[in-house]
Design a binder for these strands. Structure first.
Length: 373
DNA sequence: TTGGAGTCAATAAT
DNA sequence: ATTATTGACTCCAA
């Protein structure tokens, strides 16, 4: 019943005040050459504007609703993330999985980050797209079967013909930028063993993170040697961890107010919370009764009413002084009260440290600089 | 250079 | 077979 896939992305204000015309890329849809700036994926039918343009004009989209719907459609039709991702979004399976499972709220996305969601929205718009994908799936299977058959009975591989098949769809839109090192030829070299951190190492890193989300190069070196890891690995770990923690905060922000049914408590006691007393958690966590919320400064109140959400207009002020994080320092300290889910509190604390880090960094700069909130 | 955003792609887990 | 996880890499802005 509750479908209403948000608003469409149509209706374009034309060139009312449209600055310059679209520069006609002298590039003819020639061969499978890599178009750099243009539109990698054809983008369904829509007028001739690139997705980039559409993304720029797109109204606010509810990424949560969109991914929910996409997941539903994919499973209902037995369509995999790989095919969907490569064909519709121009992304790999892993990226699709991540995107569908943990979509960041629209206002936190960069122009680039919004692209996949606009594509999904467009895709959902026309049911015929599902049919098309299913057809492709069939074709792939057929080709696969054929290949398997010929390989056993016939030694000859006519790949040369390269009937083009579907593969040309345009997945390699990633074009430049992936000219990894060597590996193609019979290079008996080695494929990077792919570092896999042991659970204990991760624990140690997390502990270090709690203490210092932004370790100095000195600290990083120490950690690296102590854990016997490459410095770059430690650096990458911190980059990734910060980034992923941040995203979880966004998600919790969205889920808040999840009406619906008293489904299974998404408690998800993840993170072992290996609190080794080292907490040093300066976060106050008084147990306040009322849970007063958005004061004059309404934080992103995603009225994620289960389903048929109409048009939530407001919001405009949300991302106002949107530092990487939303919410205000004071808010964080105050809101940290929420007995259940100590991990949430921990994350908020990390978030606070994050902000503090920035403030200190900025404060140490030459000029007294002023905060432009 | 540092940090953030997006992804890739190997490999874990279902 | 698919989907989930995650270290590393590219691109960018400050």
């Amino acid at each position: 019943p509750l479908s209403s896939a948000e608003e469409s992305v149509k209706s374009l204000g034309d060139q009312g005040s449209g600055a310059g015309m679209s520069q006609v890329p002298p590039r003819e849809p020639s061969e499978p050459s890599e178009s750099q700036p243009g539109t990698p994926l054809p983008v369904p039918g829509h007028s001739g504007l690139s997705i980039q343009e559409m993304v720029a004009m797109s109204p606010e989209l509810d990424t949560y609703v969109i991914t929910k719907k996409v997941k539903e459609v994919l499973t209902d039709n037995n369509l995999g993330q790989r095919l969907f991702g490569e064909t519709i979004l121009g992304l790999t399976q892993g990226s699709v999985s991540d995107l569908l499972a943990r979509p960041k709220p629209w206002h936190k996305l960069s122009l680039k980050g919004r692209e996949p969601f606009v594509r999904m929205q467009l895709w959902l718009q026309d049911p015929r797209n599902v049919e098309k994908l299913m057809d492709m799936k069939r074709m792939e299977k057929k080709a696969y079967m054929k290949r398997r058959h010929s390989s056993v009975s016939e030694s000859q591989t006519v790949d040369s013909l390269s009937g083009g098949d579907f593969s040309q769809g345009g997945s390699p839109q990633h074009g430049l930028g992936h000219h990894m090192h060597q590996q193609q030829p019979p290079q008996q070299h080695l494929k990077k063993p792919r570092v896999v951190l042991a659970p204990e190492e991760k624990e140690a890193l997390k502990r270090a993170y709690q203490q210092k989300p932004y370790p100095s190069p000195k600290t990083i070196e120490e950690l690296a040697s102590q854990l016997n890891l490459k410095t770059s690995t430690v650096i990458n770990w911190f980059h990734n961890y910060r980034s992923r923690i941040r995203r979880e905060l966004f998600i919790e922000e969205i889920q808040r107010g999840e009406g619906g049914s008293p489904s299974t408590r998404a408690g998800k006691a993840s993170e072992g919370d290996s609190c080794d007393g080292t907490e040093s958690d300066g976060t106050v966590e008084r147990e306040g009764g009322s849970d007063n919320r958005d004061e004059g400064t309404a934080s992103t109140t995603s009225s994620t009413a289960a389903g048929t959400s109409s048009h939530h207009q407001g919001g405009a002020l949300d991302s106002l002084f949107s530092f990487p994080e939303s919410g205000h320092v004071s808010s964080v300290a105050t809101t940290a009260r929420n007995p259940r889910d100590s991990s949430l509190r921990k994350k908020k604390a990390a978030n606070l440290n994050n902000i503090i880090h920035r403030l200190e960094k900025a404060a140490s700069k030459d000029e007294p600089h002023e905060w432009e909130f």
